[in-house]
Write a protein that binds this DNA or RNA. Structure first.
Ligand SMILES: [Zn+2]
Ligand SMILES: [Zn+2]
Length: 724
DNA sequence: AGCACGCCGACT
DNA sequence: GTCGGCGTGCTC
């Protein structure tokens, strides 16, 4: 059997490894070039990985090479390879994920061309008399005279200039339809406005980042309102002046026009964004602009970490503790970690900014593997508001708000300010009960109870899409004594509306479902009239409310008491983030209602001493060999029965493991049934990454070969963010 | 993941 | 007799 030279192609299929294809042309396309290949009965767009020899008897040939040069920069390709290895995800799928949709589909890697009409040199000398017999051409001529830089066809149409007239002018050589050159916009001065005055700590941080040479990871640890953004802005200025690019990652919710505007206002360089709101075409254009160095500041969400960069100088990850940086399905990467890898490869600084750093990041700073830049002061204000703990067990029955809280809200709005009530629970009431037999409405497809949504008058499951009518009689005993218990945003809004003379604005997923609804509510809030805001997590992040003088937090308890080892950490982060909404201007007050006023961690968090809380949590993690002191990987599996899910994982658990790897489980997932499927998980724990990865590879092999895998949906999650 | 092939139950 | 259920196997 003869051996032939072949191209190794990475394909977007959930299979490990590359597939080999014959290719006769010369030279062979380089790594990172897209090709079209036959695969089974279909045709796929794949990416050239390399060249090798193959004696596979059924070799097929590449059907087309789609690019003249690789679409991936070498560095981005290497990042994808490393991520594929680390997260044990097929390379072809990772590469596919990194590409804009249009390139995935085989589209041209060319920016869209903006074409405009303008007068030619000859056209500018044409007199009105020469077109007096052609009124439409006359009009077109007049419009074009007023716009020497040219106008798009769409603009001209809007000005009542149609294409026949334009074509006629072109045929006479008076007008032309030309392609606009979006040049790199070379301007000597990158600063478009002077920087704000920075305080001492900000200065220090700015200089540290500016003076960094080569790979230097920073933790910018600054409380809310301490001016992290100003540090980012000033730290990046020299990079931009040197012609470099800066990549900025922000949480989904933080990528607002205001944020982008702040960068655009400061710097006279092209600023581009990458987020889910773009059309495929816009996304491709922005991606190419970054790759080709035309965009100089690239602001994006999680997936923007896969933006190719022509000349990178600095990477910034804002709100670096935010769990939205970890992809929760498919290719489960953590953009914060990839940002650090990337900076390392590129030999540039990376800044992780947070008021409440993830314990992983904090530990790196403690170990001096990250440079720790602290901003303790509020840049514009005095001290942070203390969080007052209120004992919620003293509330009257069925009253979500303590009298003290209600009184504080009243006083706040009486003073002409706004108050925020944070309750992380949508709907009217989270429980529907039978008074006689204790029955509670639960989801048929999940191990969870139904929430009463009064506006739509139905019961809904928050873990799947099922909903049902509110029963008038108990399905268990027939009693008509059905009542609700507990409160969500809806009931709280109603209650506040009844007791206060000011508008109550509800912000949660249900109340902002329609497009533009959120924006209009935010706008109303920013107008500053006295009001009470009621909201879920949606309100916790990103938004700045100048008139907010009081924050009342209603249900943080679940987080602090959560079975998940990250529960308290994430609850504290959320708590401090919500508390930080208050008192940005004018003094603020924060009240925390809890049924566990003596809970140690909660008290620490409420004292505002995040470092002390973090120390306590890190000590617990150390004792339990949990991250960052131990490393985790989680196999999750769901099947039509719990038995099938457990049996499959049991088979994996029986595989031999490397030294130092602990296999825990399998166990049924904390929510055993969800959306009609039964779930189980198998946890791997190790203090060293190498044996963990080795073991993962072995278990993955076993999983792919197991006939049981047919009846299961399963995946592996390296560094899982939550285990619930 | 797709997409085929293939073998058994209940239909026009 | 065929339509269609999903178990099984393969994709260079
Ligand atoms: Zn009953
Ligand atoms: Zn459900």
């Amino acid at each position: 059997m003869s051996t032939k030279p072949v191209l190794q192609i990475a394909l977007p299929v959930p299979l490990p490894g590359c597939y080999d294809y014959l290719y006769s042309g010369s030279p062979a396309p380089a790594q990172g070039t897209r090709v079209q290949v036959p695969f089974g009965r279909r045709t796929l767009v794949g990416v050239v990985h390399g060249q090798t020899q193959s004696d596979y008897p059924k070799l097929k040939a590449v059907s087309a090479v789609l690019d003249d040069a690789p679409v991936f920069t070498a560095e981005l390709y290497a990042l994808c390879e490393r991520a594929a290895r680390y997260y044990h995800h097929p390379l072809g799928e990772v590469l596919n994920y990194a590409l804009p949709a249009l390139l995935r589909q085989g589209g041209d890697a060319q920016p869209s061309q903006e074409k405009r009409w303008r007068l030619t040199e000859r056209g500018t000398h044409v007199s009105d008399e020469q077109v007096s017999r052609a009124p439409r051409q006359h009009q077109a001529l007049q419009v074009l005279r007023e716009h020497p830089k040219g106008l798009s066809s769409a603009m001209l149409n809007a000005l009542d200039v149609a294409s026949p007239a334009l074509n006629a002018l072109r045929d006479k050589g008076w007008a032309e339809h030309f392609v606009v050159e979006n040049g790199p916009g070379i301007s000597k001065e990158v600063l478009a406005e002077p920087p704000l005055a920075a305080n001492g700590e900000q200065q220090q941080a700015i200089h540290a980042i500016q003076d960094a040479e080569g790979f230097t990871p920073f933790l910018l640890d600054g409380v809310t309102g301490s001016g992290k953004t100003e540090v980012y802005l000033q730290a990046m200025a020299p990079q931009l002046a040197a012609g470099k690019q800066v990549l900025v990652l922000v949480p989904e919710i933080g990528l607002t026009p205001q944020t982008v505007q702040r960068f655009r206002q400061r710097f006279a360089v092209p600023v581009t964004t990458l987020h889910s709101g773009l059309t495929d075409r816009e996304r491709l254009d922005n991606w190419l602009a970054a790759r080709d160095g035309k965009a100089r500041i690239i602001i994006g969400t999680r997936s923007a970490i896969f933006t190719p960069l022509a000349n990178p100088g600095l990477i910034i990850v804002d709100e670096a503790h935010d769990s939205s940086l970890k992809q929760q399905d498919g290719f489960r990467y953590h953009a914060r970690d990839l940002a650090t890898w990337r900076a390392q490869t590129l030999n540039i600084p990376v800044v992780l900014g947070s008021a409440t750093p993830a314990l992983e990041t904090l530990q790196l700073a403690r170990d001096q593997r990250f440079h720790w830049l602290k901003l303790s002061r509020r840049a514009t204000e005095q001290q942070r508001p203390g969080i007052e703990i209120l004992d919620a067990t003293l509330a009257p029955p069925n009253q979500p708000l303590l009298p003290l809280s209600l009184q504080a809200i009243k006083q706040c709005v009486d003073n002409g300010n706004q108050a925020l009530v944070f309750i992380n629970r949508r709907g009217y009431a989270p429980m529907i009960l039978c008074q006689d037999c204790g029955w509670q409405a639960e989801c048929k497809r999940c191990d969870s109870f139904l929430t009463w949504h009064r506006a739509e008058n139905n019961l809904r499951c928050h873990h799947c899409d099922s909903q049902q009518r509110v029963p008038s009689r108990c399905p268990s005993c027939g009693s008509s004594a059905i009542h609700e218990a507990g409160s969500g945003t809806e009931k709280l809004t109603e209650l506040l509306e009844q007791s206060l003379p000011v508008p109550v604005i509800r912000i949660d997923r249900d109340a902002t479902r329609r497009k533009g609804e959120l924006d209009s509510k935010l706008k109303t809030i920013r107008q500053g009239d006295p009001a009470v805001l009621v909201g879920t997590q949606m309100l916790a992040k990103g938004h700045h409310f100048p008139k907010l003088a009081l924050v009342v937090i209603l249900d943080m308890d679940a987080g602090f008491l959560s079975a998940d080892f990250r529960g308290p950490e994430q609850a504290a982060q959320l708590l401090l983030q919500v508390a930080g909404r208050s008192g940005r201007e004018g003094q603020g007050r924060v009240l925390l209602q809890t049924r566990h006023p003596d809970h140690h961690l909660l008290q620490l968090a409420a004292s505002g001493d995040y470092p002390a809380l973090a120390s306590a949590l890190l000590e617990e993690r150390r004792m339990a060999a949990l991250p960052p002191f131990g490393h985790l990987a989680l196999f999750r599996c769901e099947a039509m029965t719990l038995g099938k899910a457990m049996a499959f994982l049991q088979e994996l658990a029986q595989q031999p493991v490397a030294d130092g790897v602990n296999v825990l489980g399998p166990v049924p997932a904390p929510m055993e049934k969800r959306a009609g499927r039964y779930r189980a998980q198998l946890l791997l724990q190790a203090s060293q990454r190498a044996p963990l990865h080795q073991t993962l590879e072995r278990l993955l092999d076993a999983a792919r070969q197991s006939p049981q895998s047919r009846q299961c949906r399963w995946h592996v999650d390296v560094d899982p963010i939550d285990m619930l």
